[in-house]
Design a protein around this nucleic acid. Structure first.
Lengths: 145, 145
DNA sequence: ACAATAAAAGATATTTTTGTCTTTTATTAT
DNA sequence: ATAATAAAAGACAAAAATATCTTTTATTGT
């Protein structure tokens, strides 16, 4: 569905949203470990989300780390896909046809459009904070062991 | 959603199903041109579908080419995904978690499982022949121009 | 038999994705 | 000020995906 980078971005952001605050920031070691992702690669991804997209916040030095502002927690999950350049799936034709549309539908269009719409709806309505809360509610912990 | 290879595989197979018969086979040039894919790369993909998976049939030499048997037209679109090793999307967690399930759901599981189910249903019920017929019915032609 | 045709097979190239490692910069506590 | 800490930045490496090109093999019509 998504690239590894986008998967890590989603998992990391949700994890940070759940565990961090402005007073308690998270280090890259803890994050990468918790979401089962390669540390250095994850650091690069967090850089993109932090520096280029301001979805995640960070400070350097002792007691530094990553955290999410309340404002960021209100962002839809889709904003992570946009930041990672991986939002095509919410828009594009299943068969990869450029001109696929209501007027020139591909053979799967009629049935697929509803699925794509639901997927888009999911990523547009669910906020990062909501996703983090669903973990807090005790349902599950992000880990891949 | 799918890899380029899988997109080409789906488009090519549907195109061959629509245009070919045991009496009228299609050459790689026509196919690659019609579905807007790189010729040699498409040839490799057709090899996989032909030699390894027997979804497409082929004969060499003059009047040779690719075609689909009636039996193959009854295969579900999913069989192409399986052949291309790209069926993960019908099974896996959106966030890429290995243990995501009803018991250990990821924060998106509750809503995503319905979408994934519909996608799987689509690829399991729609046959290659049905997809080809939807084009024949005059709705659209596969091309990316 | 022979030439022409078209897929099969094999080798190679390019690009993208994924991943690692080292150095630098900012921040903090002592 | 200085040392310790932790992210930022940059260079590099490996793997996978995408794509191209050449040679071989099977088949057919003459």
């Amino acid at each position: 569905m998504f690239s590894k980078a986008t998967e890590y971005a989603l998992r990391a952001t949700i994890y940070i949203a759940q565990k961090s605050s402005e007073e308690h920031k998270l280090g890259i070691d803890e994050i990468a470990n918790a979401i089962d992702s390669p540390k250095s690669f994850t650091a690069k991804i967090l850089q993109v989300l932090t520096r280029d997209n301001h979805i995640i916040s960070s400070v350097r030095g002792p007691n530094g780390g990553f955290f999410l502002t309340q404002k960021s927690k209100k962002l839809p999950a889709r904003s992570i896909l946009l930041a990672m350049g991986d939002e095509d799936i919410l828009e594009k034709c299943v068969l990869g046809l450029k001109q696929c549309s209501e007027i020139q539908p591909c053979p799967m269009h009629a049935q697929y459009k509803s699925i794509r719409k639901q997927l888009k709806e999911l990523f547009m309505t669910k906020t990062i904070g909501q996703l983090a809360t669903e973990i807090k509610d005790g349902v599950v912990f992000i880990s891949n062991q």
